[in-house]
Computed example of a mutant assay.
Amino acid sequence: MNNAPYLIPASAVVAEEEIKKSRFITYLAHTPGIENAKAFVAEIKAKHADARHNCWAFVAGRPEDSMSWGFSDDGEPSGTAGKPILAQLTGSGVGEITAVVTRYYGGIRLGTGGLVKAYGGGVQQALTQLVTNEKAITVQFTVSCEYPHIALIESILASHNAVQVNTEFSHNVVMTVEVDARNADQIAEEIVNRSRGQVSIAGLNNNQ
């Protein structure tokens, strides 16, 4: 599993241009997961039901995870729309993103090369306007300890910017913490070592 952070869209983008009397409108949106990506495509298709084509592509997860990619030419000649759109998205290094390019036909054929340039170019232009955030990959695990160890654990968690999601107090203390996945094993090891093994960790897979 890749624990490195990646970029995701901070907000939606709409870009429009006219090429040989055809109107192209490019939409970019943050869509975490394939279901959200498909829902966004359906939303734009419904909004522009009168358009000749609503071509699209998505990268619904990590940028490099091809299992989360999808695309469609939506009636344009094969390979002239969906693939050029997807190529721009995968080349951007941004994840959880969907692009839909709506085309209102203007009566002048663009040819296959012209279509590739129009669809790919529209997404390329929209991407220049895109603002992104970094998505950190986090994991949760539980820490069980006696009351005297609370201060030590909270100090270690604070030094690593870890978040206490939940704390239960009974005969002992059970904390659920959320940490950057890249540092999870190191934080857990530090807690165990500094408590001289008197604190137990659960829910952390070493194959993260």
Rank of each mutant, 00 (worst) to 15 (best):
A126P: 12
A60Y: 04
G122S: 04
R194L: 15
V116R: 13
V94E: 07
F169Q: 10
A162M: 12
A42L: 03
T31N: 02
N183T: 11
V94A: 01
L115P: 11
T128S: 15
N183C: 08
H171F: 07
T26K: 00
E17C: 04
A4I: 07
I108G: 11
N54S: 10
N205S: 15
L127W: 04
A37Y: 04
S144G: 12
H30W: 08
R103P: 03
L127S: 01
L89G: 05
A162Y: 11
L204R: 10
V94P: 12
V100K: 09
W69S: 07
C145F: 08
Y147V: 13
R109H: 13
K45M: 04
A46E: 14
V101E: 09
V41Q: 04
T142D: 15
A49M: 00
A46K: 15
G113S: 13
D65G: 02
V116N: 06
F58C: 12
N205Y: 09
D74T: 08
K21I: 01
N166W: 06
G79M: 06
G122Q: 00
N207R: 07
A99Y: 10
N193V: 11
S78F: 02
G197P: 14
H53Q: 11
R52S: 14
A99M: 09
A87M: 09
A46Q: 13
C145K: 10
A81D: 02
L115Q: 05
L152F: 00
G107I: 11
T98G: 01
T142C: 13
G91P: 00
I97H: 09
H48K: 07
G120Y: 00
V163W: 05
G106F: 13
V116G: 05
D185A: 14
G121V: 12
I85P: 03
K21W: 00
Y6M: 01
E134T: 15
I201G: 08
K117I: 03
P63C: 05
G120H: 01
K20H: 08
V165C: 09
V94G: 04
P9N: 01
R196D: 15
E17H: 11
K83Y: 11
G91V: 04
F169A: 07
Q198I: 03
V123E: 07
R194Q: 15
R103V: 01
K38C: 02
A12C: 01
V123S: 04
V199F: 12
E18I: 13
A15N: 12
N205Q: 09
R103C: 06
